[in-house]
Design a protein around this nucleic acid. Structure first.
Lengths: 341, 341
DNA sequence: CTGTTAGCGCATTCAC
DNA sequence: GTGAATGCGCTAACAG
């Protein structure tokens, strides 16, 4: 087999070699690299030539060891696989693209243990700031982390860290979505919600209830079904409901993936969407515009959120005042809902 | 606003302070940390107590500066947003979980410029090995990179780096899929392929043609439609075909996302799947089991691939011989295909 | 078994 | 403007 050799090849000389090659001191070279001070034109030329000849690249580690700044921002997402977080990450990456900062990604996997490990790793790696896209940690723990590194949170509102928390009005959006169903004439509306421990899941559920009670409609506990934000759980839960012959005419799913699961359960029983049952999701994943039928859902502007998060991090790192913007969660009307009857 | 302070807080003392606190030399502390040599029980106790008291954590940068090994493996995916690569990444993360190595992710965004930048950044950050999940770079460039850092490639077969390349038989799998359609009696089969510059896209297209010619069927250039692996492109291309009233009875999409786009185009025209048109995808994304109808598709064992890639990297880093395994691409039969007539 | 010494590669005071 | 010296925090010889 073609071996790589166990050691990385020496990377084009050190600042010392450049200095010798150019006949100047290393401080002069350093000044040229960092633009710290003016340097005579001829020396600058000589140094630049030497750097080029030796294919010189400053050593990141040595440099960071001194300055204390690694020029990286750590990003931990609950799950990189999730299309939702992936798009936020895309926004972060994009916003950082033409800055000296680099994102470093890691996953929390919805697990306290993994998330803790990821955080420790990134702090150990000396990231200059940390972005948490969702978190399973307690407020206290989070405040502790914020004491070790500038911390910016998405999807959590932690007392004491408010100005670095970006949350969306999940409850209001869920209320909107449910109300839309009510306005279409639906009365028995199923809600597929995520894990009770999950803040977003909880808020959406409350929004659903708000809409019902706000319209003077009764709450039907048997219509609130728990899932885990994945397709399968929703399909199962709804299938059980169908088997129990509990009547309903609409479904508000806690996210688009659960909407897809619900959709399949309906399809299996020969129920049409939206003719027999109306369906609304939450997230507006890219794929949801292409489901059959295209899904009516709540849009979370994930990409823009990622950008906002990154820009805020940049500001914080620059020591500038910065406020996280607010985002609306519009209901995107497509074809999975229609008036009852 | 709640400020973070511009500087990260001092992280629980240095090895020097620990040594002083414990009344030993720093080398003794270093030995205990790294298990480099045996240390008397009482000193070990004292040092561990001191480390705990000072909340000591060795400085990653200083350590790496000396050892030359950062204990990280860089991972560059064309696109983290893509569900396909995301699952490979999940496999990589998982395989690295209980090792001293940490993955560091970055995106190439299907762009030579971005990919080059990502590679430079990661090498600059001194990753010990680099995993490329897809690449837009030339063979020569890739060989150049391999000279700077141990390189492992997925989805590319580069002469000279064969033993570190993991590729799948896209062509054979595409042939299988198409042949399945042929065996069901289909003769006019549309193929939605990805960008011509993309190796996978090219190979799948060839597999499609192989199947046709292998069965003695004619190639119909008007049935080969180009897309970009996203839903929208497929929907458009197929809509055009439908408008032009070109007859066909089946569609083999270059990936599941394009299959979804095609599905919607058919739906818009009132064509049923599989009753009027059979549809096959490629990738077997998690969502594809929940489309309407569930999609027949070629499964790429992405998670296992990620694991294999990471394990190979580990072996290479350990200086052990290692061979990348082969993976089958089975056709997953679901409900989007059926015999003609 | 343990302490002393010398750097890793670079930014950063200081003098000149 | 520029060079010499100092040290970031740690590991790796080197002596004892």
């Amino acid at each position: 087999m073609v071996g790589h050799g166990k050691r990385v090849k020496k990377q084009g000389g050190t600042i010392n070699e450049v200095a010798r090659e150019a006949g100047v001191s290393i401080s002069t070279v350093s000044r040229i690299i960092n633009g710290t001070a003016f340097v005579a034109e001829d020396k600058r030329r000589a140094v630049e030539a030497a750097m080029h000849r030796l294919d010189f690249q400053p050593n990141y580690l040595a440099r960071t060891l001194i300055t204390g700044r690694s020029m990286t921002v750590g990003v931990i997402a609950e799950d990189i696989v999730s299309p939702f977080y992936a798009d936020v990450i895309r926004g972060v990456e994009h916003a950082l693209l033409d800055t000296p900062y680099q994102p470093v990604l890691n996953s929390g996997h919805w697990s306290t243990r993994h998330e803790t490990r990821a955080i420790d790793t990134l702090i150990y790696r000396k990231v200059d700031a940390l972005l948490l896209l969702g978190s399973t940690l307690t407020d206290d723990t989070l405040r502790g982390v914020a004491g070790r590194v500038p911390l910016i949170l998405f999807g959590r509102r932690v007392p004491g860290l408010e100005s670095h928390c970006l949350t969306l009005d999940q409850r209001g959006a869920a209320l909107n979505a449910t109300r839309h169903l009510i306005e279409l004439g639906h009365r028995r509306i199923v809600h597929l919600h995520g894990p009770p421990g999950q803040q977003d899941a909880q808020e959406r559920r409350e929004g659903y209830r708000d809409a019902l009670t706000g319209s003077g409609l009764p709450l039907h506990p048997e219509l609130e079904l728990q899932g885990d934000f994945l397709e399968q759980s929703a399909a199962q839960a709804l299938t059980h409901l169908l088997d129990a012959r509990v009547p309903f005419t609409a479904v508000f799913a806690g996210n688009d993936q659960m909407a897809a699961g619900a959709r399949l359960a309906l399809y299996r029983r020969g129920l049409r969407v939206p003719d027999d049952v109306s369906l609304i999701g939450f997230d507006d994943l890219p794929a949801s515009a292409f489901t059959i039928p295209p899904l009516t859902t709540v849009r979370q502007p994930t990409y823009q959120i990622g950008q906002a998060l990154a820009r805020h991090a940049l500001n914080v790192l620059a020591g500038q005042p910065s406020t996280l913007p607010d985002f609306d969660l519009p209901l995107i009307m497509r074809e999975s809902t229609r008036p009852l009857r």
